[in-house]
């Protein structure tokens, strides 16, 4: 130190180290992964602002008291689990989402095959017509259905009366009301399944069907042994996507029944609105809507695991 060697050596080392560090930073900046991260950053920020933050904020809200002045832990969740009305909401939400998604997938699958076997211009016309329910805003479609099935003034009851039959109070009976809610959702959502399946069917090599035909396979056997295995992943993804959307559905129930009769048609979203906004209990409303999360998480785990396994097998 005293002879000055350090004073000479240190700047020299710094002089050597600095270009190396600059070079390292440049290399880091030029790395494809860094570039990709920087380019994705706006999206990450958007997701953080619009998904992650609201999610954790709603968890925080759900643990406050009614006036949002005191932390109450899991009280709101325990309260809901002990409520008979909320049991009905869970039942109705699951019944609605699972039944609706099942029928959307089934009808979409059938329609996709029918479409696939129609050729040329005709297919384009039918495809366009069948997509109409999907492009009409669901609130408008639901209002249309409401006019068809509500009370004494509905179109369906008018037809029934033309044939000398008594009008039916479709929305006043729990099970017929549930049935119509599912029907409206199926009517609206089926085209999405159809178009997804049709797109996948078009990518299935035609030779597979030709080979099966030479082997004497029937139409059903072709579906069972060729179409279904080829469509399994897209079925899984569309079912998962639709489950998420259907579980969170609000407008159909709100317009058709608003939860009546006697709370038997409420789903998570409409009940959360009733409790959170109409009753002024935002924390409880947040707790209701968060119940969707574990249910969807279970569905997601099973469906995505299946897709992942099949993809691994394919590789």
């Amino acid at each position: 130190m005293a002879d000055g060697t350090t004073a000479v050596t240190a700047p020299a080392l710094r002089g050597i180290a600095q270009p190396a560090r600059r070079g390292g930073l440049q290399r880091f900046a030029r790395r494809r992964s860094t570039l990709a991260f920087v380019m994705c950053l706006p999206l990450f920020l958007l997701i953080a602002g619009l998904v992650v933050y609201p999610f954790f904020y709603s968890i925080y809200l759900s643990m406050l008291n009614r006036e949002m002045t005191r932390f109450v832990g899991l009280f709101n969740y325990l309260y809901l689990l002990s409520s008979g009305t909320f049991h009905l909401v869970i039942f109705q939400s699951c019944l609605f989402a699972i039944t609706a998604v099942f029928f959307k997938a089934l009808i979409g699958f059938i329609l996709a095959h029918v479409m696939h076997n129609i050729s040329g211009r005709d297919q384009r016309i039918w495809r366009g017509l069948l997509l109409i329910p999907w492009v009409i805003p669901p609130a408008l479609s639901t209002l249309g259905y409401w006019w068809m099935v509500s009370g004494d003034y509905s179109a369906i009851n008018w037809i029934l009366q033309l044939f000398g039959l008594h009008p039916v109070a479709w929305l006043a009976n729990t099970w017929t009301a549930r049935m119509w809610i599912i029907i409206v959702n199926v009517w609206f959502g089926t085209p999405f399944f159809m178009i997804m399946y049709l797109a996948t069917l078009k990518s299935v090599p035609e030779q597979l069907y030709e080979a099966a035909a030479i082997d004497g396979a029937t139409g059903l056997q072709k579906i069972r042994y060729i179409s279904l295995p080829m469509l399994r992943n897209i079925i899984g993804i569309t079912v998962l996507f639709s489950l998420i959307v259907t579980f969170a559905n609000f407008d159909i129930v709100e317009i058709l029944t608003a939860g009546a009769p006697a709370n038997t048609t409420h789903v998570f979203a409409t009940y959360a609105f009733q409790v959170g906004i109409n009753s002024g209990n935002i924390p409880m409303g947040a707790a209701v809507s968060l119940f969707i999360f574990p249910i969807l998480a279970v569905f997601s785990i099973f469906i995505l695991r299946g897709i992942g396994r099949r993809t691994q097998e394919a590789i």
Binding site: S150, G151, A169, A172, A260, P261
Partner: peptide, 21 residues
């Protein structure tokens, strides 16, 4: 009361009157 009284909403009574029923 109307058969669908259990699912009446805020427009239903208006419709009942206006329809003449």
């Amino acid at each position: 009361l109307p058969a669908d009284t259990a699912t009446y909403d805020d427009a239903s009574n208006n419709k009942a009157l206006i329809s003449g029923k």
